[in-house]
Design a protein around this nucleic acid. Structure first.
Lengths: 363, 363
DNA sequence: GTGAAAGCGCTAACAG
DNA sequence: CTGTTAGCGCTTTCAC
């Protein structure tokens, strides 16, 4: 019984190179398709010997259920989307993204989930269009967002699209969206940094911030001011800059231009800016850390590559990525939208390396 | 006529929040589903007014064809796969990948293709398993490979899986696989670099190579030797190292340890290594470029961030990525496997910045 | 010009 | 315990 029926899909076309289907496996195992389905999905009601035969047949045919068919059937897509609204070069310069993605993948891969990436430029509607497509075409089960922005419109859009979403980082206002961030004191790192500098005798500390349309940018700048205030100090200067290296260089030039307003230490909004700033200072003839102490943020690999090695505020981006993926799964399993408990990710902390040292001259 | 039939899919379930289907659009437009299909796929046989009504209805319902349904129907998945067989941190340290991906995406996005990324560790079977899943589950239309390896087994695997593939870079032996690489003289960059150093009076030039299981690694090292030979020189030393920063640091320590065998210039297999090596040299008390000239490869953004700015051999990775995507489309359209004409990508060329200078002392 | 109907590969009722 | 069957949303002959 049951080996070859003339209606077997195998007979459909002559080509014996076609991908096997569940029917082929069923035929080879001498069972019905539903039996195969139950076996591969671990549903009860199939005897062990039958299960074995099915597995053997599947193995022999090198068959796995077609992802598209399963998805169409209404189940999961087994793919998570991510849209990066930045231009190619900015992305390349700031490995922030790559690290995060590595973390996300670390969780997705074992669950046999894929990450569907969309790098769209910074043109106005591009990002929104990308999310729309993802949702309308039902390509992914959910999306992971980064870089919460002030007045971020993506949450509203995603809710409207009914696309489950997880945000990495602090949301703008507590939007009803699942977000993943470092546990404990979010501001620990910057406080430690300020403390560290104060201990080293610095009284003139400047801050180079990124574009203030990002939530985390503003948050960091404010924490900096607060931490300084607690020690009775005021920021020597705060420069708002772009995230690019060029902008950081310009910021440093301005900072070091006037001798009487010159800081002895600078905090940067991220490592890329810090490294660029450090180079700029050296080019201007200032030694780091002798004449100027520099602190970055993120703990990207580049910080350890340069000389002097960059003192920075490290946050575990890989861990954050993993947490985001885990939260996503939680969302998906809980039949949507009830926030998962905030994942415990180690709070950012100061990593003292070589770019900070004692202040040269007292106030 | 034709607005609401009781059998409309809309009636299926009470939930009016379900995603619209082609049937909804058909109903709203007062036509049949096949008419809608023809319209959205630009098939002939539908009158202009009807087309318009269909478009309007689709627009109003915010409907786009479900990607999964279309894929199941046998058409394209509209997704390209990429598997990175590296650990998360290595990937993060070397933005090579991100830049390439940006380029690929630049072509995929307008064609409404997605990039399905899989970052698997370096465990033995992981990469192969990833490709297998991609193929067996029919998740992608093809894959893009990078970093051709000596004795690369992926081509054979992919052929067997009948998964269209494009390789970025020079293949190991001319495997019958579509590959994309810089046009013209592949070795131009390294030759220019050697020429540049020779002009500056360097006679003692060393090379720090990466793991020699990569095709490009071996190729670059050989070109270096050849270029040197043409000027009657021999490499002072060649150090085989890992791609990591640590390894580069160790290599430099060894290189600078013995005064009598000390090179006055070093070429590195990539920018990350070069930057790390440069820092190591400075830490040992050697000034760059006064005591040691340093040249990298790739022209990653980090090269412009550091001080002194890195002289490097630039290859247009973004362009390469675009070319790979284009080649993929060619493959897909040509009904498979006949190599597309090699895309013209600018050959690698030397970018002289600050890390190279005149040799300190003559031989 | 337009529509009805047959699947694509799979899962989940429902029968046996 | 196992098999039959009806779709999931779409495209595509083939009639009308």
């Amino acid at each position: 019984m049951a080996t070859q029926q003339s209606t077997s899909p195998r007979t459909r076309r002559g080509s014996r190179t076609d991908k096997p289907t569940i029917a082929d496996v069923a035929a080879l195992a001498g069972v019905s398709v539903s039996a195969v389905s139950k076996v591969v999905n671990n549903r009860p009601g199939i005897s062990p010997p039958t299960r074995q035969r099915v597995w053997d047949a599947a193995e022999k045919l090198r068959w796995s259920p077609s992802a598209t068919a399963v998805a169409l059937r209404g189940a999961r897509t087994r793919a998570i989307g991510m849209v990066a609204g930045r231009s190619a070069d900015v992305l390349a310069a700031d490995p922030h993204f790559s690290v995060l993605i590595s973390g996300i993948e670390a969780e997705l891969a074992p669950a046999d989930y894929g990450l569907l990436l969309h790098i769209v430029g910074e043109e106005p509607g591009a990002e929104e269009r990308a999310y729309r497509r993802l949702a309308e075409e039902r390509r992914v089960d959910g999306v992971i967002l980064t870089e919460s922005r002030i007045g971020d419109s993506r949450f509203e859009l995603l809710r409207q699209l009914r696309l489950p979403a997880v945000l990495v980082g602090t949301p703008w206002r507590e939007d009803p969206i699942v977000s993943v961030r470092a546990g404990g004191e979010q501001d620990a790192g910057i406080r430690e940094a300020v403390h560290h500098l104060a201990e080293l005798g610095h009284r003139h500390i400047a801050y180079v911030s990124g574009p203030e349309d990002r939530v985390h940018t503003v948050f960091r700048r404010r924490v900096f001011e607060a931490a300084l205030g607690e020690r009775g100090l005021r920021p020597t200067r705060i420069v708002i800059s772009e995230f690019t290296a060029d902008a950081a260089v310009k910021a440093v030039r301005r900072l070091l231009a006037e001798p009487d307003r010159r800081p002895t230490a600078v905090l940067f909004a991220n490592d890329t800016m810090a490294v660029a700033g450090m180079s700029a200072a050296r080019r201007l003839g200032f030694d780091v850390p002798r004449d100027l102490s520099v602190i970055g943020y993120d703990d990207l690999p580049v910080g350890e590559l340069v000389y002097p090695r960059l003192t920075t505020i490290g946050q575990d981006l890989v861990q954050l990525g993993r947490a985001a993926a885990t939260a996503m799964f939680g969302l998906l399993d809980s039949g949507r939208s009830e926030p998962v408990e905030p994942t415990a990710v180690r709070p950012p902390g100061l990593l003292v390396r070589e770019s900070t040292g004692p202040a040269a001259r007292g106030a």
